[in-house]
Design a protein around this nucleic acid. Sequence first.
DNA 1: CAGCATCCCTGGCGATACTG
DNA 2: CAGTATCGCCAGGGATGCTG
Lengths: 135, 135
Amino acid sequence: MDRIAYLKSLQQRKQSASFDHFLSMVNKVGNCPVRITNHVIGGKWKPVIFNLIVHDVNRFGEIFRIVEGLSKKVLTTQLKELEADGLIVRKVYDVLPQKVEYELTEKGRSFIPVIQEMCNWAIQNFQIAEQSSPK
Amino acid sequence: MDRIAYLKSLQQRKQSASFDHFLSMVNKVGNCPVRITNHVIGGKWKPVIFNLIVHDVNRFGEIFRIVEGLSKKVLTTQLKELEADGLIVRKVYDVLPQKVEYELTEKGRSFIPVIQEMCNWAIQNFQIAEQSSPK
DNA sequence: CAGCATCCCTGGCGATACTG
DNA sequence: CAGTATCGCCAGGGATGCTG
């Protein structure tokens, strides 16, 4: 019995709704999209970086100075990934000394409520180590 | 100038709301909770597994048969992590052959809307490789 | 059926030093 | 100021075989 047949027999045993819906849920919710979201924000420092840019702390040096434990190399790569995923844009000013700012795109702004949900759920369901001041 | 002082000066330059709010956002949203959520669902197969259990496909062998590419070892560990994080419970039936079922906890159910949001955002913002049938 | 034991390998991350 | 360039670690995951 192949996978599809097995899924069908399962769905009947489980008496779920329509098989198409069942299959769609198994594939879509399970497989691709959540993993995309996870990848987009899943870097170790990406939530911090993203959130700083949301609050207009949007220059390389600013972020680097504030987030301790974050190396320049990692900051570079995570910024590049956020840019590649279309959440932020890199604005280069042609002045000396060099000046670069990062800004949210439309897609980036659309992600704010999602990250807020993720944040709220964790706060409500786990004991967060309250660090009233950054160490 | 230390981090706090630097943050304060930044917040003034940025003319954000109150400093406490600013700091809280930087720490909370940025740091802990989102990373917790990411860790909870961040395993390579966790979304699939979680979603299957949501749809009452809740036995080790069922999940193993449906999700191709998933090894028993990995399935074991990810189930254990989901259990350790309190999203699912392991119900052992004392019969032969052995029978084990996994079920959502209250916390697990509370996570469903969050994962749905993550899913929807990805669908709306990325081209998902539509796989109408599982390969 | 529902796992555990073992070995291996890659990618994300960290530390440090250098540059246009 | 805003990055590159190297080197190196190690946890998450894959492959395969064994067990109560």
